[in-house]
Design a protein around this nucleic acid. Structure first.
Lengths: 194, 194
DNA sequence: GATGGATGTTAATCTAGTTTAACCTTCTTT
DNA sequence: AAAGAAGGTTAAACTAGATTAACATCCATC
């Protein structure tokens, strides 16, 4: 196990003492998942906020027509969870599934209040990362409206070059809100263009 | 001036002592705007997080074609800001404009760290409202992909009946990511249906 | 009460992106 | 090396929603 990357990530926002680190590690847990395994299933209550130590996951939603919509990808140093379900302890709207063998560091629902009580600085930490996540989410909403599918794809490639390499095309299409056939057409166009 | 509604809103999430309330009020400010006035302008740095005491605002983005895209509406007991600009102190991507005469309670950028230092509980407060905002934002992304324009309109009416009454139709169309002409068509369809 | 600005509607034409369906290419697994 | 799965491509027919343009309505204010 190796919590180094989590501690390094946290240290970019707040400073924890050795004692606080011990408390943090005692109240959270490390877990490995295999490619294909589900960390959260639509309908179940999401029990963890999971920090990605290694690997890659997709968060997706199955709509009433049975269509899959990718909400986000999570790679190293990012989070995976159905936050809505986790916070309100109600059934999850989303699935979270591993696209590769994955190592997670999990913050359990029933330990959160204790964690915040023992390490109040964590309030600040989560406030800061939520601010960033919210800003990014708002930006994505506008882009989905103001950009064409081709522009969104180019933007995605530029913003997440690592993810583009690791994830199958049809999932990227889903993330962009288009069909895999249309993404294939866009890619063909881009090749012809240069 | 009447900070009651802000204090009531805050009290739903954390408890402030009388002394803390005094500090809060001394470091923030009340301001009135007229219909049409801009609270934030695209390109300027956003100086405040503003809590809405009364009135109504739109946050919108002008794209490179000059088209307006409404990102959110803010009414009583909600927030208005370009959070990305506010947090990173960089030029705003969005405009925030009053749709009615509006009373705001403003948290200044250069007082935030002092506020957090003097009232650490505010970290928790903002963490909690950001969690909610992020969850809502993620949900909107999925809905924009998985629902038709008509379904999104019905959903909007149901979720924000107050806003639908107060705001011109063409802005609702923009919020839904469709043209005013198409929204008009949808409304006509809905009338014919029943 | 007329003028103008802001809002809303209707209808014809157009297009970005979907659907369907067939086929191709790679990995895995046996 | 054969046989599937899983992923990716192509192309024709289709549709949700955009665009354009003309007209209608509701006001505020001179």
């Amino acid at each position: 196990m190796n919590a180094e990357s989590l501690l390094h990530y946290i240290s970019q926002h707040i400073h924890l003492t050795g004692e606080e680190i011990d408390i943090l590690l005692s109240l959270t847990k490390y877990r490995k998942y295999l490619k294909g395994q589900f960390v959260v299933q639509q309908g179940d209550v999401c029990q963890y906020e999971s920090f990605v130590l290694s690997g890659c996951l997709k968060t997706f939603y199955i709509d009433k027509e049975g269509q899959e919509h990718v909400v986000m990808f999570s790679v190293e140093d990012w989070w995976a969870s159905d936050l809505g379900s986790f916070l309100t302890h109600t059934p999850a709207d989303y699935n979270v599934q591993c696209l590769e063998n994955t190592e997670l560091f999990q913050f359990p629902y029933d330990k959160m209040e204790l964690l915040y009580a023992k390490i109040p600085k964590l309030e600040r930490f989560f406030r800061i990362i939520l601010q960033k996540a919210f800003v990014a989410s708002q930006k994505r909403i506008v882009q989905n409206f103001s950009l064409t599918a081709k522009e969104r794809y180019l933007q995605f490639k530029q913003q997440y070059p690592q993810i583009e390499q690791r994830v199958p095309q049809y999932l990227i299409a889903s993330y962009l809100g288009i069909t895999k056939e249309f993404l294939s057409k866009i890619r063909n166009q881009l090749i012809l263009e240069q």
